[in-house]
């Protein structure tokens, strides 16, 4: 349990660090930090259950996207502001760096390993984001249709 709390704390603060680097509006810091921290804890937790980086990254990004969408609707900010710092702990930037480092060191087998993982993880994360975003635009379409029906 303690492990999850410290993990949440670390991910929360590093997400806020990135929010500063990305010049996010100050009022969104605490919320995007919350998305990042909770996403990372869920990632660690589901990694223990499924033992698959891909599934965990997918579930965690789903949660981050839902939290981001919620805050985006409440605060009328674009969801980008919450999601981009929030997914930072999950995102395979290091994988891409290791891929290139392996290539520079002429270790082509390792490069292929890392490269495949990068591709799959980024597909898992962006797939989760796309699912939540499409559900939200579906919800908006329905609301719009209802409003038009009422006006007729």
């Amino acid at each position: 349990m303690i492990e999850y709390i410290t993990n949440f704390f670390y991910a929360y603060l590093s997400t806020i660090g990135f929010a500063v680097l990305f010049n996010a509006p100050v009022s969104t810091f605490i919320k995007s930090g919350f998305a990042g921290g909770l996403g990372w804890v869920i990632y660690v937790f589901s990694n223990g259950i499924f033992e698959s980086v891909l599934v965990s990254a997918f579930i965690a990004s789903l949660v981050i996207a839902i939290i981001g969408e919620f805050f985006a609707i409440v605060d009328k900010n674009p969801i980008t502001v919450y999601i981009i710092p929030g997914i930072i702990p999950l995102v395979p930037g290091f994988g891409l760096y290791y891929t290139m480092l392996s290539l520079v060191e002429r270790n082509f087998g390792m490069a292929a390993n890392y490269g495949t993982e990068v591709l799959l993880i980024s597909i898992a994360i962006s797939g989760a984001l796309v699912i939540v975003l499409s559900l939200n635009s579906y919800r908006r379409q329905i609301q719009k249709k209802r409003r038009e029906m009422r006006n007729k």
Partner: peptide, 23 residues
Amino acid sequence: ITGSIMVMVPGVAITNAVRDSIA
């Protein structure tokens, strides 16, 4: 080294690339 190059590493860029492609 891992921690300190984190600020440069292009994780968001590669995720956005895949997102744009999916869209």
